[in-house]
Design a protein around this nucleic acid. Structure first.
Lengths: 221, 221
DNA sequence: TGGTATATCTTTGAGTTCGTACATAAGTAA
DNA sequence: TTACTTATGTACGAACTCAAAGATATACCA
């Protein structure tokens, strides 16, 4: 299990300061699939993921989950609600077993008096903004085909570790749509899939899909 | 025209420090509709909006604009690309005439050695995250009906200042869709529109649309 | 250990929906 | 007038839902 000092946000603090913080942290264990916090909830604590993987997602009025991102320990989650003391914009659920440390917000806010900590906070927030920005791009610009092409181009290995329906939920598309588009990509000889290993055959065509948001049908059809 | 000290991000700095920064700022004037920077571009400067209004938007492969947000002077724009020295995630265009101050990134990064400045930066980034988070919610959770209902509930006055096609572009829907849904809202007696003044008649029904993402049809149809 | 049963995933087809695109008419303003 | 904005009808398309069949995995038991 990780400790505070393993998290970049806190790693710049002195031994002494860290020890003091550690004293005030309430450590909580979670089982797989349990909820850490719900969208719209508020909390008096910063949630620090010390062990395990979580996902963050929003829920639509009809109960559909909109996947935002996954996070692995060690990591501070929901920084922005902690800083602004506002409600969580998303629900956080464990994908594995895991552990969360709860740091009282007063303690966090006191840390900000330390310049190194503030700079680390800026770094951490930058990182989070990059994630958000990326997500926004995927959800507003990319078509389903482009989402899939992008995933294959950047992280083809994920198909070895996750089932297609899990990948679909990460991309916020239905498994049916994923299946259909993968079939199309195979038929167009842009990729091959063998025993869950996705291999890129035509990198250019893939890039083209990402850039144009669509696949030109092959003349042979 | 505003100056650096009018911007919350910089207002905590000493007179001396401000004067020094001001010396290194290159001030540039822009005409209405001109582009400040393009998506994917990089810059060695932080852009500080000193006068006028801009909008930020992404462009899809088919040339459609996806509106992100508008900003008014005084304000630092594109903080995240400035901090991380990465490409702009969006295009910035003036909606009015205006002025931008260009602050070399070295100068900005030097400011971060000042704790008050760092704290102001954290505040500014928080604010930006809130914007992004809001936008993400609108684009991923809301239906077109909910977007419009939300706008009417929170900012009905905007209909007095902007034409419907401008409002449509802010909501990232087509003018046709906006027109149809406004007509529907009038027919259901949820709002009235008189000479561009939108009045809410049935607040509950409006809230209901925002929460459920759809309008139940009235029995009379 | 192997074999079968059962559950879960994936694929495919058909139909629906939401919002867009295009065309055109009607309204409004300079 | 002339240009632009708004409204409305029709058509289209991307991705969804629902349903059912086919393929894989997992569990259980002899």
């Amino acid at each position: 299990m990780y400790e505070l000092k393993d998290i970049p946000l806190f790693s710049g603090l002195s031994e002494l300061h860290l020890a003091e913080l550690q004293e005030h942290i309430y450590v909580k264990h979670y089982s797989k699939d349990s909820i850490v916090f719900y969208e719209e909830d508020k909390s008096e604590y910063l949630h620090v993921l010390l062990e395990g993987d979580v996902k963050l997602y929003k829920t639509t009025p009809n109960g559909k989950e909109v996947y935002l991102h996954g996070m692995s320990a060690p990591n501070a989650i929901a920084l922005f609600p902690a800083l602004e003391r506002v409600a969580f914009p998303a629900t956080c659920a464990f994908l594995t077993e895991g552990t969360v440390g709860l740091l009282p917000l007063e303690k966090l806010h006191k840390c900000l008096e330390n310049l190194d900590f503030s700079l680390a906070m800026i770094k951490a927030m930058s990182k989070r903004m990059k994630l958000l920005e990326n997500l926004l791009h995927k959800e507003t610009i990319f078509s389903s085909e482009a989402k899939i092409a992008d995933l294959i181009a950047n992280n083809a290995k994920i198909f070895q570790h996750l089932r297609n329906n899990e990948i679909a939920s990460i991309l916020n598309i239905t498994p049916e749509t994923l299946s259909r588009i993968l079939t199309k990509l195979k038929k167009e000889e842009i990729i091959t899939i063998d025993d869950h290993i996705v291999t890129i055959v035509n990198q250019n065509a893939l890039q083209d899909i990402i850039e144009t948001n669509s696949m030109k049908k092959s003349a042979s059809n």
